[in-house]
């Protein structure tokens, strides 16, 4: 196994040089997981809008949703550009996102906001980790990807703050709820990195 891993490392270093339209391994996984994440986020807001669309927080959620749609479109574009394989689990994230969004929204707007806060916390952290990893690696990474991730991270942070402003912390079982959602998000991220 050790031998195989060494082989893998060696091959990885040669792959970027020989492929013309192909991306490196790290970038490959970064784009795949980010696309999966934005897809999930898009669906979460879709779920929230289905329940809370006509209430007072409707416009706020709509605004965040629109931003997430842009994020998703951007990563879809990157997938095509870098010939990245999308994750196999797109249908799963599609449904899971909607259920999470609609489920928390049914518990009230504050719970919905708590869900937003939890998800965005994880995503911001995740983007920061990615930026660090991409900068540290010796793979050649386009400026475009880094800029995109930075911009999206800032917007996700804004969503997080919006959630707090709308009283996310007063949601029932705030602690438990956010921890469960955070845990779920982290699992989803680590799965999407590989599959």
């Amino acid at each position: 196994m050790l031998h195989l891993r060494q082989l893998g490392v060696r091959l990885m270093s040669t792959s970027t040089a020989s492929g013309t339209t192909r991306s490196g391994k790290l970038l490959d996984s970064v784009i795949r997981v980010d696309h999966a994440g934005e897809l999930g986020a898009d669906r979460i807001y879709a779920g929230q809008m289905a329940v809370l669309g006509k209430t007072s927080v409707g416009p706020t959620i709509q605004h965040m949703w629109d931003q997430e749609k842009k994020h998703r479109a951007k990563f879809e574009e990157l997938i095509r550009k870098y010939r990245v394989r999308p994750t196999v689990l797109t249908p799963v994230w599609n449904v899971a996102g909607f259920v999470l969004g609609a489920g928390t929204a049914l518990m009230g707007e504050k719970a919905a906001m708590a869900c937003t806060v939890a998800v965005e916390t994880v995503i911001t952290e995740h983007y920061n980790d990615q930026l660090r990893a991409l900068m540290e690696s010796d793979e050649k990474v386009d400026e475009e990807v880094l800029k995109t991730i930075k911009k999206f991270r800032d917007e996700e942070q804004e969503h997080h703050d919006t959630g707090i402003e709308h009283g996310a912390e007063q949601a029932p079982f705030y602690r438990a709820l956010t921890n469960v959602i955070k845990c779920g998000c982290k699992t989803a991220i680590s799965i999407s990195k590989i599959v």
């Binding site: 195989l4 990885m12 040669t14 792959s15 020989s18 192909r22 490959d28 394989r85 590989i194 599959v195």
Partner: peptide, 18 residues
């Protein structure tokens, strides 16, 4: 090991071929 050698080999691992 299984994940690395099995799944990746099939699709992400164009590296194997390069």
């Amino acid at each position: 090991g299984l994940l690395i050698n099995g799944l990746r080999r099939l699709w992400t691992c164009r590296v194997l071929l390069t």
